[in-house]
Design a binder for these strands. Structure first.
Lengths: 340, 340
DNA sequence: CTGAAAGCGCTTACAG
DNA sequence: CTGAAAGCGCTTACAG
């Protein structure tokens, strides 16, 4: 069909080695005179030669392609921009470095070893869980992997791990709420995301910091709601006395804002709501959402950059990088209503 | 490093052909007894065999990978969910059919022929422009390509083309506005997206339909603003007499809503604003955005499905599919203020 | 029913 | 300075 290096060699009357050298560099000892090189190039142009990258990959063992695994890729179109920022930042880095980006479906946990099937040079895994045994297989595998937002991994792994300081973020939130005068605070997780690494770590930080502050918050102050949040009105009717909600991420916080409005609950007058992530999404809610901010783009850029370093044989300086969070105070939090 | 088919053949004492047959199916005439097959499989498991997909691709000419080209990938993180829906829908279809999805950087228009470098079985191209000469090269090339939202392509191409009925959408918008009593309407494009196929087609439809309705709208009723829209207050101060704005997409409409609010212009009381696309984004603006709705997900699903059909040798039924638009009336449009 | 062998298109040590 | 040849790991006609 399309011309190969061999076809060109034949037409030009030289060896395939010379053609390879001229067209693709490489080839240590080969040397070709300038005129001959020009000639080969002209023939290649004439024959509309397109190098077969698959063959080169097979031979060289390098595909110049990085894989990306999103746990719950579906949530990308939910509205909040967390995953979108991630994708955008990773893509920018990779494209600039002349890598391609392949989105993988959620991995069949039976055979993660099939990731080293030659198509990928490395992998970025978002929200990798320490459960599931995938972890061991990945560590054993030959494929360089960088974890992103997989806080529960702990430090007992040789996997590169980039995540934000979730505890620090929750601390900022709690400082803010307690500073406003809130004492009874509810932490909301989402059914189906209960075992998401970040969610778990944030919940634990919630307990820990509440205790530090002498708030006496316990299991009854942590709930799991489904995205459709029929639970909210029921909960509100129970008059539990909570004056503020901390949602584990901005998506959940956003849907709480909506349901609260429909239920006639006024935010922040009746109830303060705080989220986590703080993308531009928080500017579009009504009221605008107070949220802990993690530097998603920066984290994604660091992860992608490091992975490429790893692939190209440059040793990374640290195995683990934790990014500090900040707090963006917007309109969804205020002092609690006077106790009635 | 990792075991190959040949290693297994050696250990099992059979031919590589048999191993290939047992492990990957295929191989027409080969027949292997049940016990021998079991034995081979057990050896493979023992040796932790992982098939090299790159080698298979080189041999078979099929990569099971589809490429996706977004013109202006950067805009994905701007907020509106148009591109996100597209990505999500395409990914779902491909994953289900066991294809991988590779995001490509914007293509070097010098050598689109390098797309057929063996790594892709097909390509989905969003917002492909008829300019640039890429078109011809693609048509000539051996790679199956499906265009998505590339309305300006016209019907003189043998490229598959899936797009919405932009003119129909603009007609719905104009019917709505004129029905409310608007006569002087501004069409807003975005600098840098002026040559985007959809934008061009929508602008032309705007002219055409305005004329049909006897509105006498001309060049002074179409403007290009930059995303930072410093232009809005300047334009508003000129008192042009426009009572409604049609933005070429929801992103532009959204930023107009913001700037208008900052400029103290009340929407829809002082000014009606309409957008195009109508993703969930339109529910998050203040006020909620009236917009023409194109069935983005459905279109993306159709495009991806058809491309896979094409790749796998099933002939598509039509070369071109146009999807009708609808109108989602929300809070950003109302009757014009009484003329003063 | 099974195996030996060619070949997908490239790169790269090696020999001249 | 240049070319012939092996080999990346697989698949598949072909011969036995």
């Amino acid at each position: 069909m399309s011309a190969t290096i061999r076809d060109i060699a034949k037409v030009a009357g030289v060896s395939v080695a010379s053609v390879s050298k001229v067209l693709h560099g490489g080839g240590g000892t080969i040397r070709v005179s300038a005129e001959k090189a020009e000639y080969i190039k002209s023939i290649a142009r004439e024959m509309q030669y397109v190098p077969n990258v698959v063959a080169r990959t097979l031979r060289s063992g390098r595909s110049n392609t990085i894989g990306l695994v999103f746990e719950q890729f579906g949530s990308i179109s939910a509205g909040p921009l967390y995953y979108v920022y991630l994708l955008d930042a990773i893509a920018s880095v990779l494209f600039e470095k002349h890598y391609r980006l392949t989105i993988l479906p959620e991995i069949d946990s039976d055979k993660p070893e099939s990731l080293s099937d030659g198509r990928l040079d490395g992998l970025i895994w978002c929200k990798l869980d320490r459960n599931g045994g995938i972890l061991n297989l990945i560590e054993r595998g030959s494929l360089p992997v960088v974890a992103l937002n997989s806080s529960t991994l702990g430090s007992d792994t040789r996997l590169m791990n980039f995540h934000c300081d979730n505890e620090g973020g929750i601390r900022l939130i709690m400082d803010h709420l307690v500073g406003l005068g809130h004492k009874k605070i509810l932490f909301v997780m989402e059914t189906g995301e209960v075992s998401t690494p970040d969610a778990v770590v944030r919940r634990d930080a919630f307990y820990k910091i509440a205790k530090e502050k002498g708030l006496h918050l316990g299991e009854e102050d942590v709930v799991q709601w489904s995205h459709s949040t029929t639970e909210f009105p029921v909960w509100w009717a129970k008059q539990t006395g909570h004056t503020a909600i901390v949602a584990w991420n901005e998506a959940v916080a956003g849907s709480i804002l909506e349901v609260a409005q429909r239920a006639g609950v006024s935010v922040p007058t009746d109830l303060s709501v705080v989220g986590f992530d703080s993308t531009a999404y928080c500017e579009t809610t009504t009221p605008r959402l107070t949220a802990a901010c993690q530097p998603i783009r920066e984290m994604a850029i660091a992860a992608a950059t490091t992975l490429v370093d790893l692939v190209e044989g440059r040793a990374p300086t640290h195995l683990r990088r934790v990014f500090p969070c900040t707090l963006d105070v917007r309109g969804s939090t205020s002092e609690p209503r006077k106790q009635s």
